[in-house]
């Protein structure tokens, strides 16, 4: 880490986010910054608003109050079409499960984001194959998600999230459904790739061992960030 004298401008910054699901408040004034190339863990107990925070930051959900700025653009004000495009090209998402299309093979699942941005099929499949190999999913390119183990499927998900060369990867409990060894493999694959490519990662987890892969940790409690650096 090279320390600069001036404070670096964050790549993604949320200020005073508020969001309710019906009458239940999920976020009440949460502020988070994600710097370029940084891996940030967001931890907190169930129901503390972690997933809602990720949805707001990734432009999946529009906050009720506050702002989300991504490299000079106000995400909370962008039209859905542009948000969808951003999510397709500049962001990658990994959920606990569900982001793979069950009917598509591993290779086609990874190639899908490339097809959506107009890459020819053969090239998309070739690049998808390279990414699968990087994540150690070799010889299983033609399997469908249902035929793979949870750890393999999650590595395919990572490949799909990273194939377009995004600037930010959002991972919501990426190891939540895995045993600890498979979880370690997924996490080290994610961390190594992100560091090599200089990708920022926002990692949601309730597991401290997963959060320890990050450079920094933000704790959420009841929809707000717990102040850090308490002096004893």
């Amino acid at each position: 880490m090279n320390h600069q004298t001036e404070v670096p401008v964050p790549l993604l910054a949320a200020r005073d986010l508020a969001k309710s699901h019906g009458r239940t408040p999920a976020l009440r004034g949460a502020s988070v910054e994600l710097r370029e190339g940084e891996i940030l863990a967001v931890t907190g107990p169930s129901g503390s608003g972690k997933s809602t925070l990720l949805h707001c930051l990734a432009g999946i959900v529009r906050p009720d109050g506050g702002s989300v700025a991504y490299s000079g653009e106000r995400l909370d004000r962008l039209p859905e079409k542009r948000l969808s495009e951003l999510r397709r090209t500049e962001f990658g998402v990994v959920f606990q499960f569900g982001q793979l299309i069950p009917e598509l093979t591993a290779l086609d699942n990874v190639a899908l984001p490339l097809l959506l941005t107009g890459t020819p099929r053969a090239e998309a499949r070739a690049r998808a194959g390279e990414w699968l190999e990087r994540f150690g999913v070799r010889g299983q390119e033609e399997l469908r998600p249902g035929e793979m183990s949870g750890g393999q499927a999650q590595r395919v998900s990572l490949a799909r999230a990273l194939v377009t060369g995004p600037r930010v990867v959002f991972a919501d409990e990426p190891t939540g459904a895995l045993d600890s060894l498979a979880g370690e493999q997924v996490m080290s694959a994610l961390v190594h790739t992100a560091r090599e490519a200089g990708t920022s990662v926002l990692l949601i987890t309730h597991d401290a061992r997963v959060a320890a892969y990050a450079d920094r940790e933000v704790q959420l409690l009841d929809g707000a960030v717990v102040p850090q650096g308490v002096t004893v």
């Binding site: 320890a212 892969y213 308490v230 004893v232």
Partner: peptide, 15 residues
């Protein structure tokens, strides 16, 4: 809270 921060710091080192 301070102990937690220290623990997390050590966990990051070990990781």
């Amino acid at each position: 809270q301070a102990q937690r921060t220290a623990h997390m710091e050590r966990m990051r080192e070990l990781t």
